[in-house]
Amino acid sequence: MDSETLIEARALTRRYGPNVAVSGLDLTLKKGEVLGLLGPNGAGKSTSMKMLTGNLSPTSGEVLIKGKNLRADAQAAKRHLGYLPEQPPVYPELTVDEYLSYCAGLHGVPRKERSAAVTTAKRDCGLTQVSSRLIGNLSKGYQQRVGLAQAIIHRPDVIILDEPTVGLDPIQIREIRNLIGELGNQHSVILSSHILPEIQAVCDRVMIINKGRSVYDATIDAHLGKSGLVVVFAHPPQIDALQNLPGVNKVDAGPAGRFLIELADGADARDAVVEASVHGGWGLRELRLETRTLEEIFVELTSGEATLREAA
Rank of each mutant, 00 (worst) to 15 (best):
R71T: 15
R71Q: 15
A72W: 02
A72Q: 11
D73C: 11
A74I: 02
A74T: 08
Q75K: 14
A76L: 08
A77Y: 04
A77K: 01
A77S: 01
K78E: 01
K78S: 02
K78P: 00
K78R: 14
K78V: 02
H80F: 15
H80A: 13
L81S: 01
L81G: 00
L81R: 02
G82P: 01
G82K: 01
L84A: 02
L84K: 00
P85M: 10
Q87K: 06
P88V: 05
P88S: 12
P89W: 05
P89L: 11
V90S: 03
V90G: 02
Y91R: 09
P92D: 04
P92G: 03
E93G: 01
E93H: 08
L94Y: 06
T95E: 14
D97N: 11
D97S: 12
E98Q: 12
E98H: 07
E98M: 06
Y99I: 01
L100P: 01
L100Y: 14
S101C: 02
S101N: 08
Y102D: 07
Y102W: 10
Y102Q: 08
C103P: 00
A104P: 00
L106D: 12
H107K: 15
H107R: 15
H107G: 12
H107P: 03
G108Y: 00
V109Y: 15
V109Q: 13
P110C: 06
P110R: 05
R111Y: 10
K112V: 05
E113Q: 09
E113Y: 03
R114D: 07
A116C: 08
V118R: 02
T119C: 08
T119Y: 05
T120Q: 12
A121M: 13
A121R: 05
A121C: 13
K122P: 00
K122I: 10
K122Q: 14
K122C: 15
R123V: 13
C125R: 01
G126M: 06
L127Q: 02
T128C: 05
T128D: 11
Q129H: 12
Q129P: 02
R133H: 12
L134S: 12
L134Y: 04
I135D: 12
G136C: 09
G136M: 10
L138Y: 15
L138A: 09
L138K: 06
K140F: 05
K140P: 01
K140V: 06
K140Q: 05
Y142S: 00
Y142I: 03
Q143C: 11
Q144I: 07
Q144N: 06
R145W: 09
R145F: 10
R145M: 11
G147K: 11
L148S: 04
A149H: 07
Q150I: 07
Q150C: 10
A151I: 10
I153R: 03
I153G: 09
R155C: 14
D157P: 05
V158R: 09
I159T: 09
I160V: 14
I160R: 01
D162F: 10
E163R: 09
P164D: 15
T165S: 13
T165W: 12
V166M: 09
V166A: 14
